[in-house]
């Protein structure tokens, strides 16, 4: 008998247990900061209030420019006033899925401080681990955020003039949210992976966040952009982080284009998964080559 027996290979059951531990730890870690949590979620709706008033004033002026009383017939970029408010509320949901605070900068700091070595030694896959902890953080967030979200949507139900979308559109909406989450994750993780080559990615990240804020549709519906700009922005994957799910829900994507659009989104997702994996393996090779 040898002194050190080999550990048994990790089976599916064992793996599931590891995953559940990662998810549970993430959950309780999040919930521990209770004050931040509840307050933060409600606060997030405050800018929506100003948005509503701002757009209300803009639509008033549009009506008055046309010499008409304000009603729902005035449209800006295909959106009337209730649509516009509904749009901003829906982008809140989309952002709740696709935003990844601290992901890229976290990877960058792990690379910089050499903590990344841990993943080379331990039998854990970095990307898998990050994805699981992110899922648990998001789950914890939804647990606490569902109530305030439901409350706000209930208050604002009047803005959803078209009512609830038909089932297949709603399924597409859910699909776009999930893919939005994954695109957000792999896109930011890829940016984080750049830190294997460039030590200071935080600047890059900030630029990315600025552009993403503007071009994802977080600030305004992308249909408001002048034709020439809009055609370029529509080719970028950023719209899946905010604009696209909201537009799907509000039926702003023509029925016959919906399936194609979803396929294009899936293609972008595949691209970012591959890019992220590829950069990680290249980065690790480069890192161990240095002897870090």
């Amino acid at each position: 008998m040898s002194l050190a027996s080999h550990l048994p290979p990790i089976g599916i059951g064992q793996r599931l247990r590891i995953w559940s531990i990662i998810v549970r730890t993430g959950l309780s870690e999040r919930i521990a900061y209770r004050g931040d949590f509840a307050l933060g979620t409600l606060m997030r709706f405050l800018p929506i209030i100003t948005q509503i008033f701002l757009w209300g004033a803009i639509f008033n002026a549009v009506a008055s420019d046309a010499g008409a009383e304000r009603d729902d017939s005035q449209r800006i970029g295909g959106f009337n006033f209730p649509d516009m408010v509904a749009y901003f509320l829906l982008t809140m949901i989309a952002r709740a899925f696709s935003s990844m605070p601290g992901l890229a900068s976290g990877i960058a700091s792990q690379v910089r401080q050499g903590e990344i070595k841990k993943y080379l030694i331990q039998p854990i896959d970095l990307i898998g681990f990050l994805l699981l902890s992110r899922i648990s953080h998001k789950l914890a967030y939804y647990v606490v955020a569902t109530l305030p979200f439901a409350f706000v949507f209930f208050l604002c139900r009047g803005f959803f003039v078209a009512g609830f979308p038909p089932p297949h559109v709603f399924v597409a909406f859910l699909g776009s949210l999930l893919m939005g989450f994954l695109i957000g994750f792999f896109l930011e993780a890829s940016i984080g992976m750049i830190s294997f080559w460039l030590l200071e990615v935080n600047s890059l990240l900030l630029i990315f966040m600025l552009f993403s804020f503007f071009l994802s549709g977080h600030m305004f519906p992308l249909t408001l952009l002048p034709e020439s700009v809009a055609s370029v922005v529509n080719l970028l994957p950023l719209k899946y982080l905010a604009y696209f799910p909201a537009a799907v829900f509000l039926n702003k994507i023509p029925e016959d284009e919906l399936a194609t659009e979803m396929l294009i989104e899936a293609a972008w997702l595949t691209f970012f998964i591959v890019a992220c994996r590829f950069m990680y393996s290249r980065g690790i090779r480069r890192y161990s080559g240095f002897g870090g």
């Binding site: 008033n60 002026a61 600025l210 305004f220």
Partner: peptide, 28 residues
């Protein structure tokens, strides 16, 4: 650079809005 970019985006946003309206709010 990044704060100037941020400004540019805001200016861009309001320029877009003023493509659709002549004023923020009626008679303000």
């Amino acid at each position: 650079i990044s704060s100037i970019a941020w400004t540019a985006m805001n200016v861009g946003f309001y320029l877009i809005i003023f493509r659709f309206t002549s004023m923020i709010g009626e008679d303000t």
